[in-house]
Structures are given as structure tokens and as C-alpha cells.
């Protein structure tokens, strides 16, 4: 079972910025234990572009699709046997990243 694990940051109350080494160590462990599928930190939401090509021609708009205080700062994809395993790892991830984490299953 795969889970999308989102790291959520808060613009008005951001998590600490010195988490990189801890996240690397955590990733190494995820890889060693077979949970890691993919991971990546995201650039600022200002760098996002939204494309809508459902009409006559593609429309590009500058910025994220939804403007909010909380935003997606990074993602993982984990392979885990069930939600309990994913939640346990996510609880660690939240500490490691100093941010909130959302766990959502793939279909």
C-alpha cells in the first residue's frame, strides 16, 4: 500500500530551518527499512504555476492553485503494509521535520 505523505508548513508560524541533516538521516532509515519510494522538498509556493487547458486554449496563472496560510512544503511516497505503520513513521517524520504531516493513501 502506498501513501502520499505531505509535509505541511505554516507561513505565519514556520517550522525550524535546520532540519535538513535530520531529514537525510531519516530518509536513509526509510530506504534501509524498505518504506521509501520517493521524497522531495518543494520550492516556495510563489514559484508555482497553474495551467488550465480545459477550454479553447491553455491559460497560465502565476502562483499556487489555492492561496493559504498552510501549504505543502514537501512530499514523500511510502510503501507501508497498513495505516498503523504509516502513522507511526509519520509521527517520527513530524518530529524530524518540525512540521505537521498529512498521510493519505493512494487509490
Amino acid at each position: 500500500m502506498q501513501y502520499l505523505v505531505s509535509v505541511i508548513d505554516d507561513k505565519s508560524n514556520p517550522g525550524s530551518t535546520d532540519r535538513r541533516p535530520a531529514i537525510s538521516t531519516f530518509n536513509e532509515r526509510l530506504i534501509a527499512e524498505g518504506y521509501w519510494v520517493f521524497s522531495g522538498g518543494l520550492a516556495d509556493t510563489d514559484a508555482a504555476t497553474v495551467i488550465d487547458n480545459r477550454g479553447e486554449q491553455a491559460v497560465f496563472s502565476d502562483g499556487p492553485f489555492v492561496e493559504s496560510k498552510e501549504y505543502l512544503a514537501g512530499v514523500w511516497v511510502w510503501e507501508a503494509p497498513d495505516l498503523d505503520v504509516a502513522l507511526k513513521l509519520a509521527a517520527e517524520a513530524s518530529k524530524v521535520c518540525d512540521r505537521k504531516i498529512e498521510v493519505r493513501p493512494f487509490q
Binding site: M1, P81, D82, L83, D84, P105, Q107
Partner: peptide, 14 residues
């Protein structure tokens, strides 16, 4: 079902 919440008694430590 979708998130696969397990059907089991939790481990002793939990």
C-alpha cells in the same frame, strides 16, 4: 478500507 486501517490487536507497546 481506502487507508487500510488494520484489523488487528495493536502491538504490546501500543
Amino acid at each position: 478500507k481506502a487507508a487500510r486501517i488494520p484489523y488487528r490487536v495493536p502491538a504490546v507497546e501500543d
